[in-house]
Amino acid sequence: MKTLLVSVLMMAALMGAPVLAEGLLPNIPAALGEPHPEGNEFWRVNHPAILSHDRDLTVLDGIRDIDGSIKTCVACHAVEGPDAAPLTVASPEHACRTCHDYTAVKIDCFQCHNSRPEAGDWPAVLPSLGGTPESLHAYLERISQ
């Protein structure tokens, strides 16, 4: 058990995934908007299916008001980088990457989609990385409501 623990920790460190000091979970930054009404667990499991279902609605039928829109995802899950601009997926601390690096699942979306809101649409206040105890606490408060 101990070896497994150590190797998981080492893996996470190698991949650059920020790891909570006390846990083995990825440090997912808090999002800007209201929590998902369906719950985080639902979206964690179902986001790939919803995204691929809804992309066909948009691309083929021009339906833009969809539940799984990458543009909306990256706007709400934007995280402040060192230069006060939202982080791109080039950073391991990008909201998508924190989890995807941890689970070793490659993201293809951002080969074509912008991984952050485009300049001009940057939110005035960006959540900083989920590292501070206050932000984490506030986030946990919100999602537990």
Binding site: K71, T88, A90, Q111, C112, H113, N114, S115, R116, P117, E118, A119, D121
Partner: peptide, 9 residues
Amino acid sequence: VTDQRTDSP
């Protein structure tokens, strides 16, 4: 390509 227009991936 990076930093695409969000409406035109």
